[in-house]
Amino acid sequence: MNSKNSSFLVFTFFCLIAFNSFASVDTVATFSPSMQKEIKAVVITPKDYDESKDYPVVCLLHGYSGNYSDWIAKAPQLESYADQYDMIIVNPDGNFGSWYWDSPEVESSKYETYVGKELVEFLGQKYSTVKSRDGRAIIGLSMGGHGALFLAFRHQDTFGAAGSLSGGVDIGPFPENWEMKKHLGTKRENPERWEEYSVMCQINRLIPNKLKLIISCGTENFFYEVNVRLHEKLAYNNIPHTFITGPGGHTWDYWRDAVPYQLLFFHNYFASAN
């Protein structure tokens, strides 16, 4: 092969890389005034991100024992979804086992305030985002599934849509698990608190058709029964929602397969709301 042809192929190769490049993935440092500390988050912006345009935002929460890098490390296809749906996807840190509560027991753990208020304000200042609930959704897996619904139910002026993947949506059956008693005290000594801090007991906050909801859980998941109960309670209270179930356990294989359906759901919501 002569040098002229070789140079042409190299040029073509780099042009193809540039043409097919995916979203921008950045790890950013945010600051929580309520906790007086720096918290990391992954922010995925579409490849054609333009500051003259306002983008919808999906906040995607990790599960217990995870961190801000879990989603992009284990589901890197999020980059292509950010491009496909022209949205910003944010993966904040939930400090291993915060359950995204403002803990009444641990003064330094205020992750409801952080995700529901401080992170939203940071994104609005640093990125070109839709500045209303019509352009914001929140979703998570496991502990993050609980957190997403808990925050959305309690902050309906902030989020217009919410989803859960294998969420621990009723904490009552699990009083000894996942450090919850560290943040709430024991269930035996604080039964009312354990009800107050469970998604299942937040449904009375909902107004039909105000918050768009999608809930997914595999039939082999240990959270399957509590998700079915949440679905039934939402239906009983005439709260419209999408409930998806099928084979699958508490695994990344299930979450990787399920997350694109939820992102499409949010994309359609953003399109209809704006």
Rank of each mutant, 00 (worst) to 15 (best):
T186R: 07
Q262N: 13
G124Y: 07
S34I: 00
N190E: 12
A137R: 01
P260Y: 09
N237R: 05
D86N: 14
E195V: 06
Y127G: 00
N204I: 07
H250Q: 03
G63H: 00
G135E: 14
E121S: 12
P76Q: 07
L211N: 03
F270A: 09
D170K: 01
D86P: 06
F8C: 05
A73T: 13
M180F: 07
N91R: 04
N190R: 10
G248Q: 04
I203P: 11
L16P: 10
H155F: 15
A161V: 08
K53R: 13
N67C: 10
E196W: 13
T45N: 12
V57H: 00
I244R: 11
G140F: 06
F159W: 11
D102H: 02
G218A: 00
L206M: 12
E225F: 01
L213V: 02
V25Q: 04
F270Q: 06
V115S: 05
I207C: 14
F159L: 04
A258M: 07
Y49T: 07
L234K: 01
M87D: 04
R256C: 00
N190T: 15
K210S: 13
V130A: 06
N227A: 06
Q262G: 11
D157R: 08
L184M: 10
D157Q: 15
R188Y: 15
L264Q: 13
K74A: 08
E179D: 10
E179A: 03
E179H: 02
T158F: 08
S142G: 02
D134P: 02
Y224T: 08
D257F: 09
N268T: 05
Y85F: 15
